[in-house]
Nucleic acid binder design. Structure first.
Lengths: 365, 365
DNA sequence: TGCTAGCACTCTTATCCTTCGAGTGCTAAT
DNA sequence: ATTAGCACTCGAAGGATAAGAGTGCTAGCA
């Protein structure tokens, strides 16, 4: 059922007022904004309450939005915010330093997101499986050599291997051709015991080294797909009035500081076509997040990799502003990492509606 | 001036009671422990107060230790605590997994320390300057090669270099001998413009590549000495009653979450010969730490590297237990990383006195 | 029929006041 | 030197009161 225009206006104003002040909103305050008497507002609010969009903390306080109210606000009512010059400049400046190490960059992205939004933020990259493109072996001395593996995603991994016995140059060369023959182009899943066994059989006098290098190889490949999740600005939570209770704050901070939980929940499903997803309060799967909201954006990290940034905050989160900022940062990262521009119209102003409608439909099934 | 035995007993009991309960301690409670009347205790406490070891939050509450009181307690009164079987076992188990990456390990050490002590913890390693031992260049294709640098601390760094123009194998070989001749054995400080310039002159047709590789080299060397500081368990602060005020908690959490401040302050000076240092309240240089205490321990990370672990907490910190735990963990790390055993007697029970006496003397000058 | 004015009612928050009790400091006695 | 006793202080806790914000409902008006 569709809401009347006025109801929409009231809900919008109420949500925004509550987001700004964290105080329940009364009919009087809204009357001024909407332009009719407080009694009328009261009637409307009463209906909105029975429809489930508003809640009353107690009989004689104002109303606050229910999760459903926030949902409606996010899906249909919220203004697509534009970032200020200063904000876009700050983001661009941070992202401009392209020559940084990727890990370093990801770390700073978390902090950037957190400081821009004033909420705790996290950033993670999901990578597709990689394989080794080529191996090189560097002979250092009798007991020592270095394995260098160039991966398909063009990162290079290496390891210094120190042996309790001595080898000579030719053995290393043999090893090199063995590994380049048998271990290139295979992902970590595809390295089976049988490959290792057969390589070992072919290895002859370098027999003992195969296992060492093979395990290094597997480590590399596994490490390359593992997503390094960075959490930044967890202490920002303490700025929010809803976390002035230290016990609540502590609980949620513990939860988000240890990123593994976040990963379970967040990346897989429900990303809108615009790369944004908002989960509000009880929509979150994790028990610890039932009173919080999560906004996340995904970006193209190049080579089929998909990255995610997100923020966690109270349900009374400033969705509009956060969505705009995340979207802008994500677009910047896409451009930076993958050279792809974001889908049309996504750069600065947001197009949430499309994706959110999908989600709405899903929810109503 | 030396305190009477009884004053020492009173101060000790008072500090320990306050550490345990966070409540000001009255004369009655102490009378039971010490074995004389509360009036006597009151007289003694009154003297201890004028001597500056105790404070009164207000006229009619009990006494709490002043920073000087804690200092005296830490230096002379505190029992050297032994860890329980379970605690040593937990620590040993964590440290047993030697084959982990060093960074991973350092990260976990922070978490281990934090979870053992119930305070926020940090861990950092300081490394002496390193140099490159040898360079190897791997030719990948026309536009691409890999630089591999083996450092004096036996870590290996690498970088994939992609060029906008093409090179051939011989140029790479030339580059290799140039760098092995001019850039090995020099630390980052010693790489001057003039070395780069003269190498470039000698470089002839590989001219343009020298700068690229040289800057990679400097990055490596700088990165190798930069201490990766890990902070863990910042949210533990919220367990402490003194941080139930969210604003205070927020301030300190911000401070410690961004490790750079900690580094400014902590590592340089005043490490006792036993590898432990305690700074109490106003002894800390940083304004944000004036109400907190820091306990840190250093360990031998091998190859001249010195590592530090520490915890931050309220001045009402359980110094005895924290010192024992830190010391045990540090000794374990020394053994693990450097193979050296800690100085005699330091393994499990602590010898604080020696070093602290020195510090005491320094302070009295 | 929709809007508004008015009014009684509810419920929270702030404030003030009182009481209670823990703890002190001092004095006098042992 | 120690202790018992006592008057005094001061914060914490409890309770009553008042204030204020907001609601729901009814009745009147366009």
């Amino acid at each position: 059922m569709e809401l009347s225009e006025r109801k929409k206006k009231i809900l919008t104003a109420l949500v925004e007022s509550y987001i700004a002040t964290a105080e329940p909103v009364g009919s009087k305050a809204l009357a001024a904004v909407i332009g009719c008497s407080s009694a009328t507002i009261r009637n409307e609010m009463s209906e909105l309450t029975t429809m489930g969009y508003l809640e009353q903390p107690h009989t004689s306080a104002g109303r606050i939005p229910s999760p459903a109210g926030y949902r409606l606000y996010v899906n249909e009512l919220m203004e697509r915010q534009k970032l200020s010059e200063a904000e876009t400049a700050a983001i661009n400046e941070k992202l401009a330093r392209k020559d940084e190490q990727i890990e370093q960059l990801m770390n700073e992205v978390g902090q950037l997101t957190s400081s821009m939004t004033q909420y705790p933020a996290y950033a993670l990259t999901m990578k597709p499986p990689v394989a080794v493109k080529r191996f090189d072996f560097i002979y250092v001395d009798q007991n020592t050599f270095i394995v260098v593996a160039l991966l398909t995603d063009n990162t290079v991994k290496n390891k210094l291997i120190h042996l309790p016995f001595s080898v000579h140059q030719e053995q290393i060369t043999t090893l090199s051709s063995l590994f380049n023959a048998n271990f290139t182009g295979v992902t970590d899943r595809e390295i089976t015991d049988s490959i290792i066994r057969s390589t070992e059989r072919a290895a002859r006098d370098t027999y003992g080294l195969v296992a060492v290098v093979a395990s290094f190889t597997m480590e590399c490949l596994a490490a390359a797909r593992t997503a390094p999740l960075r959490v930044a600005g967890a202490s920002q939570l303490l700025n929010q009035p809803e976390f002035r209770d230290p016990d609540k704050a502590h609980e949620l901070m513990n939860f988000i500081s240890d990123g593994s939980h976040l990963m379970d929940d967040l990346p897989p499903a429900g990303m809108g076509s615009d790369g944004l997803r908002v989960t509000i309060g009880p929509e979150n799967l994790a028990e610890e997040l039932k009173d919080s909201s999560v906004v996340m954006a995904s970006y193209d990290a190049g080579g089929g990799m998909r990255g995610y940034i997100g923020v966690v905050g109270p349900t009374r989160m400033d969705y509009s502003s956060v969505a705009a900022k995340l979207s802008y940062i994500a677009a910047g990262l896409s451009r930076l990492l993958a050279g792809t521009d974001a889908p049309a119209g996504l750069n600065n102003k947001l197009v949430l509606k499309e994706s959110e409608r999908h989600e709405q439909e899903r929810r109503e099934e």
